[in-house]
């Protein structure tokens, strides 16, 4: 299943002022995979995604994407290499319509693909098509999440970074969103790196997983192994999912 290495993170450090948020992180994502990173609040999961995107900058270590070191590039340059992010908190443009949001997602893509890509996103998320003239800020949480993912897909990414897509969503919606993520990966071949607190769903979806504690990777392995791991169960799974 795993193809050539898409994302290789080695010894990555990042800091916010005096606080070191990442302390030597190694991550590998191969082409075609779904890889998840789980961990508690404040472990540094979102920081890792942000650092891959260039904000904050890596203070040490390397980030290679498709063999190229991207640690020194500006955010907008990184996003033009075929990486897209659905950021934490969704960050849809609240006063702009659903379709404008999607159009903005296509900023880095060739205009000639726009219509086909729009149809593709509407097929994945029929709700968005119903709401296409509605302003982003008036959507429900789940719809905003769909919009954030759809918007990221409009840029035709080869690597999709998802930051807590299940945050604040009803269990039914979480299932639906995760099913769509699987479809994006399986049907369209988009490689996915998923950061989640919802360890159960994330590990059930992913091929491989990493566990992060205090800015370090403490466990790594096939998702099914992590799901069965007593430590993981005790820390992230017991007490409801």
């Amino acid at each position: 299943m795993p193809g050539f290495p898409m994302l290789e993170v080695r010894g990555l450090h990042a800091r916010y002022g005096a606080i070191e948020a990442l302390r030597g992180v190694d991550i590998d994502v191969a082409q075609g995979e779904i890889v998840t990173l789980i961990g508690a609040n404040g472990a540094g999961k979102s920081t890792l995604l942000m650092t891959i995107c260039g904000q904050p900058r890596a203070s040490a270590g390397s980030i290679r994407y498709e063999g190229r070191d991207i640690a020194g590039l500006a955010t907008f340059e990184i996003m033009r290499l075929g990486i897209a992010q659905s950021p934490e908190g969704r960050r849809v443009f609240p006063r702009m319509t659903v379709e404008e949001n999607l159009k903005l997602g296509a900023t880095v893509a060739d205009v000639k693909h726009y219509d086909a890509d729009l149809a593709r996103v509407y097929k994945l998320f029929p709700r968005l098509e119903e709401r296409r003239a509605q302003r982003g800020g008036t959507l429900s949480g789940g719809e905003q999440q769909m919009l954030a993912i759809g918007r990221a897909l409009m840029g035709r990414p080869r690597l999709l970074l998802l930051d807590e897509p299940s945050l604040g969503l009803a269990p039914m919606l979480v299932k639906q969103i995760f099913a769509t993520i699987r479809e994006i990966n399986a049907a369209e071949g988009v490689t996915i790196f998923l950061v989640e607190q919802n360890a159960y769903h994330a590990l059930r979806l992913a091929h491989r997983g990493y566990v992060m504690v205090n800015g370090r990777i403490t466990l790594a392995g096939p998702a099914s192994d992590l799901l069965a791991n007593p430590e993981v169960r005790a820390a992230y799974l017991e007490g409801g999912h």
Binding site: C53, M79, P87, R91, F93, M96, L104, A152, G155
Partner: peptide, 15 residues
């Protein structure tokens, strides 16, 4: 307009 709405989201879209 996107910049007015959300600067971080803008950058994440390659703007």
């Amino acid at each position: 307009e996107a910049l007015r709405e959300d600067e971080i989201a803008c950058q994440s879209l390659g703007i």
